[in-house]
């Protein structure tokens, strides 16, 4: 039914558009791109406003890759060690922030020991934000240095992975706040990241998931297990690593939304704070924007065909 209505509406729109293009071919042919920008603005702003007001989200169904991420984390037991590598920045926060939030929430709920790390200079800030937003207010029983810690940023990109995969203390003598590693209880016995039960990487580009796979998982396939979340443009690049090096992957806000729905359905309860529903909420603007893109592509083709017909005639 929904399909029929959509097809009908699209057909109607196409007919209308064809008439409009015929009537004002020149305008459409040289369409100022700012009109498109304006349409996109409306397509994103309206759902943001409506969802903000009504707090309603679209239903989400988890696809295998997100389900696999969820399953891998679910398999861990209380006290297992997880390295959360946050390799993103404010620019990609819109796309990756919600999954980072859900990862931290999921790990904290399962009482896993969390080791945060960043290969991007600003990743450190993203970690601090995450701790301030999730762990401190909602898991006050968690103690820094015992249940979670921040290794912070180290320059050197994949070189850092290359070193810490066999010897963490060569690069990290203190945590992000200058505390001696030896004084941090949860660092006891951790001589390399092979001691982690899982690596979770949130990646916006280079260095990111690809480097973690190449320099950590590939050389130590039996010791290091990893799941990741990444931006939409990066995702196709990582598919070849699934499932062997990378059992699961969250691709962009869609993947985040699927994973978030799994986590929140299992652990969230009814009165869950809005900050844990961000990914699902962001699917609204994404839907409208994608529909607009489809319509724009239709429109572009109508202009193309009307013009071609005219040229053929003349």
């Amino acid at each position: 039914m929904a399909l029929l209505i959509t097809l009908g509406a699209t057909a109607g729109f196409l007919v209308l558009l064809t008439f409009a293009v015929r009537a004002r071919t020149e305008f459409f042919k040289n369409l100022d791109r700012r009109w498109i920008f304006l349409l996109m603005l409306v397509a994103v702003a309206v759902p943001v406003y409506v969802i903000g007001k009504t707090k309603e989200t679209f239903p989400e169904k988890a696809l295998p890759k997100a389900q696999a991420v969820f399953d891998v984390i679910e398999e861990l037991n209380e006290g297992d060690k997880v390295l959360l590598a946050f390799d993103f920045d404010p620019g990609s926060e819109g796309e990756l922030g919600p999954m980072a939030t859900t990862f931290a929430y999921h790990c904290a709920t399962k009482k896993l020991k969390m080791y945060f790390i960043a290969l991007w200079p600003i990743g450190r800030q993203m970690i601090d934000d995450n701790i301030a937003k999730i762990i401190e207010p909602d898991f006050p029983e968690m103690v820094y240095g015992v249940d979670y810690m921040n290794l912070g940023f180290k320059a050197g990109n994949e070189g850092v992975i290359n070193v810490i995969v066999t010897d963490i203390k060569q690069l990290y003598t203190t945590d992000a706040y200058g505390t001696d590693i030896a004084a941090i209880p949860m660092m006891e016995g951790i001589d390399s990241i092979q001691k982690m039960d899982l690596i979770i990487n949130v990646s916006a580009g280079y260095p990111g998931t690809k480097e973690w796979v190449q320099y950590a998982v590939t050389p130590f396939p039996h010791d290091i297990r990893m799941v990741a979340g990444c931006t939409g443009v990066q995702a196709p690049l990582l598919y070849p690593y699934i499932p062997q090096q990378l059992p699961g992957l969250l691709a962009a806000i869609k993947g985040a939304s699927e994973y978030e729905s799994l986590v929140i359905n299992k652990y969230g309860g009814d009165d869950i704070s809005g900050k844990y529903l961000e990914a699902q909420r962001r699917m609204g603007p994404q839907l409208v924007a994608h529909v607009l893109m489809v319509l724009l592509i239709f429109a572009g083709n109508i202009i193309f065909f009307v013009e071609r017909k005219r040229e053929a005639r003349s």
Binding site: A2, L3, T6, E60, G284, H290
Partner: peptide, 15 residues
């Protein structure tokens, strides 16, 4: 891909 990556993907073909 555009439709499949949104909620539309689910409800358009849920029949």
């Amino acid at each position: 891909i555009l439709l499949g990556r949104t909620a539309a993907g689910v409800f358009l073909t849920d029949f």
